[in-house]
Amino acid sequence: PLHEAGLPKGLFNVIQGDRDTGPLLVNHPDVAKVSLTGSVPTGRRVAAAAAGSLKHVTMELGGKSPLIVFDDADLDSAVGGAMLGNFYSTGQVCSNGTRVFVQKAVKAEFLKRLKARTEAMLIGDPMDEATQIGPMVSWAQREKVVAYIEKGKAEGATLVAGGGIPNNVSGEGYYVQPTVFADVTDDMSIAREEIFGPVMSVLDFDDEDEVITRANASEFGLSGGVFTADLTRAHRVVDRLEAGTLWINTYNLCPVEIPFGGSKQSGFGRENSLAALEHYSELKTVYVGMGPVAAPY
């Protein structure tokens, strides 16, 4: 129990419930602060409910984050970053870099290495230490992901790896193959909508200005990443990307010391670090007079 570690009894409570439990908590007069990690539609409902009593609210919502690979990047590292930014936790991570923009000069080699490493991933029981990718959280989520894979095929993307439900996994679980699409365009469903599953979209680009414009053309603004050997360019690019959390030559690393959170439809406020603690406190101002009051009247 947490109180044995020094927390006062009653400070931390876990309440389980159904879809009616959340509104009761958000509307309760004794709840002063609401923090939500969830979808954009849920975030809008929670923010509207909290506004009725002017509760403090922070939200970490959805994402469709760009991961940009320039032609001078270490390709093995960039492939590893793309896989970490798409397949970690079976793709069920809000910050995942699911739009992988690769400069045209290295696109073919990037896809070759990505395909080989993706197809070699071991799918299986998450309790087995050898497993590299486990099941989806539910049957409904697996069906949603599979439907997006079919949309990708129907809209003209090129299937590079995966693309369905594996038939060689023993035991229970709602599994989906780690899936990579190439030749994805900005208007495709798999490039615009959050899938929340192991589906990577690879898009190509010519130059820096172009990719920044396309990367920012999204309602989301949670995260983003850049792989390049030119750190000056890396900092220039991340400065122009409209996202709250950005990585250079790595992806999805979130030590507790750094703030994490998004912008635009991806929410507001920050998790981790001192920035998060500030959302759970209020400044109190006290002015102490040290002499007689010299009133002008």
Rank of each mutant, 00 (worst) to 15 (best):
G80A: 11
S138I: 08
V40K: 12
I248V: 15
P8S: 13
E109F: 00
V137F: 08
R192N: 13
C254R: 09
F205Q: 02
V31R: 12
Y174H: 15
P255M: 05
N272I: 01
A32F: 11
C94W: 04
P255W: 03
R117I: 01
G22A: 13
G10F: 08
T58H: 07
T213W: 02
N252H: 12
V26L: 05
M121D: 07
R233C: 08
I68P: 01
S281Y: 00
D72L: 04
V69A: 01
A48K: 12
T98R: 03
D71K: 11
P178N: 04
T90N: 09
V286D: 06
P255T: 00
P166L: 07
S218V: 04
G221S: 12
V69F: 02
S201F: 03
I190E: 06
S65Y: 04
G225K: 05
L75Y: 01
N167D: 15
P23T: 09
G261F: 02
L253M: 14
D209K: 06
F12K: 12
T131A: 06
T232Y: 10
N272T: 00
G43W: 00
G43D: 06
G197W: 01
R99C: 04
D125A: 01
Y148S: 08
G162H: 07
A295W: 08
V106E: 00
S218R: 08
S170N: 14
R236D: 14
R19M: 12
A234D: 10
A5M: 13
V237E: 00
G197P: 04
D74C: 03
Q16H: 15
A49D: 11
V106F: 02
T228A: 12
H235A: 05
V102A: 06
L24I: 10
V211Y: 01
T285M: 12
V238G: 06
L111C: 00
D18I: 05
A82L: 03
A82W: 00
I195K: 08
G124C: 03
A5R: 14
L241V: 10
S273G: 07
E143W: 00
T58V: 13
D209E: 10
D186T: 11
D20W: 07
F205K: 00
V14K: 09
A275R: 11
E129V: 13
I15E: 08
E60M: 02
L246P: 08
K115V: 01
T250R: 14
T158S: 14
T213S: 14
K64T: 03
D204P: 02
R19Q: 15
F181P: 05
Y148K: 11
Y175W: 07
V286T: 14
C254K: 07
L114K: 02
H279R: 07
T37H: 12
E119W: 02
